[in-house]
Amino acid sequence: MAKILIIEDDKFLRELISQKVAREGYEVLDAVDGESGLKMAQAESPDLILLDLILPGMDGFEVLSRIKGDEKTGKVPVVIISNLGQKDDVDKGMAMGAADYLIKAHFTPGEIVEKIASVLSSGKDSAAAA
């Protein structure tokens, strides 16, 4: 069973997405800010991380760069879920190594779950090919 780490500061959004992801049969971990999210990423080695960008304290871009910069977590696919929808933000996130960038207002939890499945399976494909 794949393990998904959700880093999202909004309690309600975090719960909604956690429940949706858990319902699909994934194991769910969640963190309310960047610092605790990073710790969890290192301690729990999740298979995928859902990352919000606007977080209290360390922001999502910083979290992303630390995840990617750490050899223990560098290979874990990170899907950004944010309301920052500007092309600049999307480009920046993708350039920093995000697997995908979902704008909250344009995606529903169901679609996010589909995205998780497709990112996980493409990861498996490339692992198998390697």
Binding site: L13, L16, Q19, K104, T108
Partner: peptide, 19 residues
């Protein structure tokens, strides 16, 4: 406004999906 609107969108969607 985008955050609360996203919350409403997500909630309605999961309810409509019968979750």
């Amino acid at each position: 406004l985008r955050n609360p609107l996203s919350v409403i969108r997500w909630t309605l969607q999961v309810m409509l999906e019968g979750d």
